[in-house]
Amino acid sequence: MDFSSFFYALQESALAQWVNTYGATYPIVESLHVIAIALVFGTILIVDLRLLGLASTNRPFTRVARDLLHLTWGGFALAIVTGVLLFLPNAASIYINVNFQVKMILLVLAGINMFIFELVTARSVGIWDTTISPPNAARIAGLLSIGFWMTIIVFGRLIGFTSVADDPFAFI
């Protein structure tokens, strides 16, 4: 299925043109995107380090997670909005960029990891909430989360430095 006409239409939209040509809009949106990613990764890292028993061990896991959750979701919402705005002006070339594709797959995997943690591991949080070292399943979820988010950031940065001509996997 060929989506290229859809992505070209997005690229030619009034919103894409505004982001791309109106004063300092693009660099401002890009800066907000970086701030949002730093907020998301920073708050998730604190929670994940608590899951690994490496930080905030004097506080219950539920307190650490609850204190940071609103910041994480706020940062994530801002990252989505700014990410879409950054995508639009170059939609036709970004959607076929392998680094973009890998980043999107990693975002889905990070979401699945979080979903499994919430659905399975966090159900027994009452048992291990105040222990310094949570169960192996919680530590694995934290380690996977850190790995996913670090690679999401790396592949996100690579998007802007890889053109389709440089991309050996552009045919995917």
Rank of each mutant, 00 (worst) to 15 (best):
H70K: 15
T57G: 13
L158W: 11
S145F: 12
D129E: 07
S133H: 12
S5G: 00
G160Q: 08
G160C: 02
S13N: 09
W149H: 02
I152Q: 07
L119P: 00
L144E: 01
F117I: 05
S31Y: 06
T72W: 07
V84S: 11
F6Y: 03
E30G: 12
L107S: 08
A55C: 09
I44N: 13
T43M: 06
V102Y: 01
G83Y: 15
N113L: 05
F61A: 10
G111S: 10
V108W: 14
A65Y: 12
T82W: 06
G75F: 10
L10F: 00
S13Y: 04
E118R: 15
L143V: 04
A165Q: 06
G74R: 15
S4Y: 14
P27Q: 01
A77C: 05
D67V: 08
A16D: 02
A9M: 03
P89T: 10
F61T: 07
N20G: 04
S133Q: 13
G23C: 06
T131L: 14
G142F: 11
V98Y: 12
I127H: 10
P89G: 09
R59L: 15
L68M: 12
R63K: 14
T162N: 12
T72A: 05
I44G: 12
I172K: 01
G42R: 05
R139V: 07
I80R: 05
L86F: 15
Y26W: 08
P60L: 02
I153A: 09
A92H: 00
N90Q: 11
P27G: 00
F61E: 08
G111T: 05
P27M: 01
V154W: 12
L107F: 13
P135D: 05
G74W: 15
A14F: 07
A55Q: 10
P27A: 01
I172Q: 01
